[in-house]
């Protein structure tokens, strides 16, 4: 059995392992999204190996928390978290983006990969899906929670704000979204491509609770999840400050690594930096 109640230091080590998986998967696939996978992986590890209620042996367990990956392109980070948590064999990670793989380039429910709740990849949709699940859980009086992961660039999608409005309106305090605030998108800096700030004030204006945290600081992430879970009558937006490409020096804070995979040489350097070689 995998330990799903890890300490901060165990989470950090797990995240290092997951970063190694991400580099290996992307290098093997020859394409994919390095920057966002590395910026969001600590967020996912803290959820899956400590905070979220779930059972890898029983992915559709009635009492599970729901996780909706709205920024579907960072699925390598989700796939490694799921595999390491025990949802499917770790070896399967190396099939990423290949024909007949359950690990599609963006999450695909119809491929039957355990732990994937919904297909995603078209930005702006996950928050509303999460709100719908949260509403459904409320109707049934179930205590499960819903966790979403959004990107900061994704905040530019209008549909996000339709969903934010509805989640505030229905006081969905069983819903939290974590915004991976890595500050970069394909065309460059989020603030220059289309400024989303002040994001905290925007969410508050939509009747949300806002929590800020360091997105690579496990203790701070756990504190943020705790605060979100304790908030009554409002959904919570966790604005997690991250570094795009975190953990690999030449990928950090470089927009060009958004949708690029490392070649064999680059992967070797990255794996050395991560202590894999």
């Amino acid at each position: 059995m995998v330990n799903l109640n890890m300490s901060v230091s165990e989470l950090e080590e797990q995240a290092r392992q997951c970063r190694i998986d991400i580099i290996r998967m992307l290098a093997e696939a020859g394409s994919g999204h390095s920057g966002g996978s590395l910026s969001s992986v600590d967020i996912l590890v803290a959820l899956y190996f400590n905070f979220m209620k779930h059972d890898p042996e029983s992915p559709t367990w009635e009492e599970r928390d729901f996780f909706i990956l709205s920024k579907g392109h960072v699925c390598p980070a989700l796939y490694t978290a799921l595999a390491r948590a025990g949802y499917f064999p770790v070896e399967e990670l190396m099939t990423l983006r290949k024909l007949d793989s359950r690990l599609q380039g963006h999450p695909a429910k119809n491929k039957g990969l355990p732990g994937i709740e919904v297909s995603s990849g078209s930005l702006g949709q996950g928050l509303g899906i999460g709100a719908g699940v949260a509403l459904g859980l409320k109707i049934d009086g179930r205590p499960n929670r819903v966790w979403c992961l959004n990107g900061d660039g994704e905040m530019q999608e209008g549909s996000i704000w339709e969903s934010a409005m509805a989640a505030g309106h229905y006081r969905l305090d069983n819903l939290a979204t974590i915004v991976d605030m890595n500050g970069l998108q394909i065309d460059g800096e989020v603030c220059k491509v289309m400024n989303i700030e002040p994001l905290d004030e925007k969410f508050r204006a939509f009747n949300w609770n806002v929590v800020k945290c360091g997105g690579h600081d496990m203790a701070d992430l756990l504190r943020a999840y705790e605060e979100a879970s304790g908030c009554k009558d409002k959904p919570t937006a966790i604005l997690a400050k991250t570094v795009k490409g975190k953990g690999v020096s030449f990928m950090e804070n470089v927009a060009g690594w958004h949708g690029k995979a490392p070649n064999a040489d680059e992967a070797e350097i990255a794996l050395k930096e991560l202590g894999a070689l």
Binding site: G132, A134, G136, S159
Partner: peptide, 27 residues
């Protein structure tokens, strides 16, 4: 009790409906 107003927001209506179906409803 089984009707939910979403307002003039069709994209979100589709998304909320998707979420409700994941939670076991027929929206």
């Amino acid at each position: 009790d089984r009707f939910f107003s979403i307002g003039i927001a069709e994209q979100n209506a589709a998304q909320i409906a998707a979420g409700l179906s994941l939670a076991g409803f027929v929206p």
